[in-house]
Each structure stands twice: as C-alpha cells, then as structure tokens.
C-alpha cells in the first residue's frame, strides 16, 4: 500500500476521509513552513514532511525526529491555500509512527504524566499562583481534586493498550528503559 493511502486509512475513520485526503492536493507552496512558529526555532519543515509522505518515503517520515516537533498550533492548517488539513495529517502520521515504535521520548514522558496524574502537564506552584491571581481555586476540579477519577483514567489506559504503546511500567510507575 502507498503511504498516502495508509495515512488516509488511519486518519479517515477518526477525522473524516475527505479531511485527511486533502493531503493529496498539496502544491508545495511553503505557506505552512514559512509561518511555522516551531520551524523558526527547530528543524521541522512541514511542507517537506507532506512531500515525503506523497513520495511514499514511509521509513524516512516515520523515523524522523522532526515529526515530533510540531506543536499542533494549527497556524498552517488555518492558512493553507489548498485547505490541506496539515496539522491533523501530522497527528495521523504520528499515530502510525507510534505504533511502529517511533514515539518520541518527550511525548512518552508527557503521556506518562497522564497515566500518573491525569494531566500531561500537572499543576505546579507557578500555575497555582496564576490561578489564585485570576480568582480561581488553586487546584482545578480535575484528577487533582478528585483523586478517585485517576483510577478511571488508568483503567482506560490499560484497556486501550496505551500503557504498552508508551512503554509504561506499572511497578515503578515510570517509563520502561
């Protein structure tokens, strides 16, 4: 199967086939890359990623470090003159890469916090201070307040195999090495 078809088959059922299929009509204008806030500081080249996907360069795309440098800010998605749903396509490619064992360490770490705390970014002192300034309760009404909800999240993680995907060790409650 061509890599493009694989991407459409993977992302289509979740985000809509037409949505992901927009990948095919990229005209390589570079409007995405030119305004990419991440690409200004990192090596991600959105247009090139799309081109490589179209050229069936599956291994190169899936194993690339750049794939994980998108912050999913959706700037490219908003501006694309061909209405290519760039960010959602990037997310779909990441899903394929994760299944192939290419999940980046940073993303595994963030995921492990979800398993441990129910938050990819758990509350910290700085955010508690900010919340207080805004007149909000210091701790949000999430797993931070309702500890019992964390069990629900953890059983979902087990049931979906998310723990396996990110390589989570329930003994140490940390990532496996």
């Amino acid at each position: 199967m061509e890599f493009v078809d694989e991407i459409i088959e993977t992302g289509g059922p979740i985000l809509g086939t037409e949505h992901i299929e927009s990948l095919r009509v990229c005209m390589q204008c570079g409007k995405c890359t030119g305004g990419c806030p991440s690409g200004r500081l990192t090596a991600i080249r959105t247009r090139k990623l799309v081109l490589e996907a179209l050229l069936n360069m599956r291994d190169e795309v899936l194993s690339s470090d750049e794939l994980w440098l998108c912050t999913t800010c959706y700037t490219c998605y908003e501006r694309c003159p061909r209405n290519v749903k760039v960010t959602d396509i990037t997310r779909t490619i990441r899903n394929i890469a994760a299944k192939e064992g290419y999940l980046a360490l940073s993303h595994r770490m963030a995921s492990s916090y979800v398993v441990k705390t129910g938050h990819a970014v758990p509350i910290n002192d700085a955010n508690k201070e900010n919340r207080k300034k805004l007149g909000l309760p210091e701790v949000p009404p999430t797993t931070h307040t309702y500890k019992e909800a964390l069990q629900g999240i953890q059983s979902l993680v087990k049931k979906t195999g998310f723990d396996e995907l990110i390589g989570f060790d329930w003994e140490t409650m940390n990532l496996k090495e």
Partner: peptide, 8 residues
C-alpha cells in the same frame, strides 16, 4: 524570484 508563498 524567491519560490515560496508568503506566510505572514
């Protein structure tokens, strides 16, 4: 002539 569509 620079090939690229201006982003912003």
């Amino acid at each position: 002539y620079l090939r690229g569509t201006v982003s912003e």
